[in-house]
Amino acid sequence: MARRRKLETLSDYQRALKKKFGLGERCEYMPWLRVQDVNSCGNSGKIEGLKFGRTHHTLSEHESCLFYIAEFSDSIIDIREQFPLLPLDLSVKIAQTLGVDHPVNPQSPGKEINVMTTDFLLTRTDGTTTWYEAVSVKPEDKLKDQRTAEKLDIERTWWQLQGIPFHVFVMTEQNKIQSKNIQWFTAPLRHGASFPDDLMDHARALTHHGTVLIEEVCNTFVQEIGIEHDDALVLFKVLLATKQVVVNLDKPIADTGIVEVLNVLSQDMECHHAS
């Protein structure tokens, strides 16, 4: 099990930077804070990424919610969580300018200034232009807290000085449903599930538009392809996770056993996409 790092003094911060925490991109990025580095309320987690070839560290259910949605988005080409606002003296100057207290580390002997982090730095593209967006994740009730607002102002100003848009993400019932759906059908891929291309093609050809019972889809796979029922469910999930079958994410899937199929990738579309 990875050890908890001490992040209490300036020398600790310098040591972390030398070890590349908070630096790098995609598979080489290491978050400034990891699950084992902070006190957990039981909602933190390590998520095996599908896009970026590394484990992602989320420190709350709300952060996990955003992560699944962001990773599934075609426009997002990198996710860096727990991104440090460095150099430290910049966030200190911003706090002074705003007339608010900069966060300190209560565990440090001399109440050292703490390195602030933004929950997510996203890299996005529209196919032509690439840009960054910073996102702070907050429960809705926390937004009414004055101290939370002060720290958000420091973050927002820090990113504005970098010329990067800053957003606040609040987990709603709707995006929670979307996230849970994505988590449900991407789980097999995160655990290494895979199927031969010809079997995937066959399963996709058996999948039709409209609202269907997952049980019926799996039964069709069992009868027509000749696989076990458990494997049929995993196969269906992989079709959804790889977007060969596109479904409505706004309705709960696992809890209802019902899915609305919006589109099925055709053979022609797949060949065009591959080219």
Rank of each mutant, 00 (worst) to 15 (best):
V104I: 15
K144E: 13
R34S: 09
Y29H: 08
I253N: 06
N181L: 08
G192S: 04
Q146E: 04
M171H: 05
L206T: 03
L239P: 01
V261S: 02
D101T: 13
K111F: 10
G110N: 11
L249P: 04
R156C: 09
E228K: 11
S60Q: 11
D268M: 11
V259L: 08
E215M: 05
V238S: 03
N105C: 14
I113E: 05
M1V: 12
D198T: 12
E8M: 13
E224P: 07
F185C: 07
K51Y: 04
H191I: 01
W159N: 02
M171I: 12
L121P: 02
S60W: 05
I76W: 02
F83P: 06
W32S: 05
T58Y: 12
N105S: 08
P196I: 06
H57D: 14
G53T: 01
P139F: 04
D250G: 15
V100A: 05
A95I: 08
H209F: 09
H273A: 09
L50G: 03
E81W: 01
E140H: 14
V222K: 04
P165K: 02
V217C: 14
D12E: 06
H208I: 10
N114H: 05
L10G: 11
S179N: 14
F83R: 00
K138M: 15
S60R: 03
Q160H: 13
V217Y: 00
E215H: 13
N181K: 10
N105D: 14
I164N: 03
P106G: 05
H167A: 13
V115S: 00
D197R: 11
A134V: 04
L213C: 09
E48W: 02
E61N: 13
D153P: 02
E216V: 14
G163L: 03
R147S: 13
T207A: 05
D198F: 09
D78A: 05
T123L: 11
L7D: 00
D231S: 11
T256C: 08
E140W: 11
H57F: 11
C41S: 14
P103G: 07
A70N: 07
A16D: 02
A134K: 06
C271E: 08
T125L: 07
A205V: 06
W159G: 00
L33D: 04
A16F: 05
E228L: 12
L66N: 00
E48N: 11
R80Q: 15
I94Y: 08
E28Q: 15
K237D: 00
C65N: 15
E81G: 06
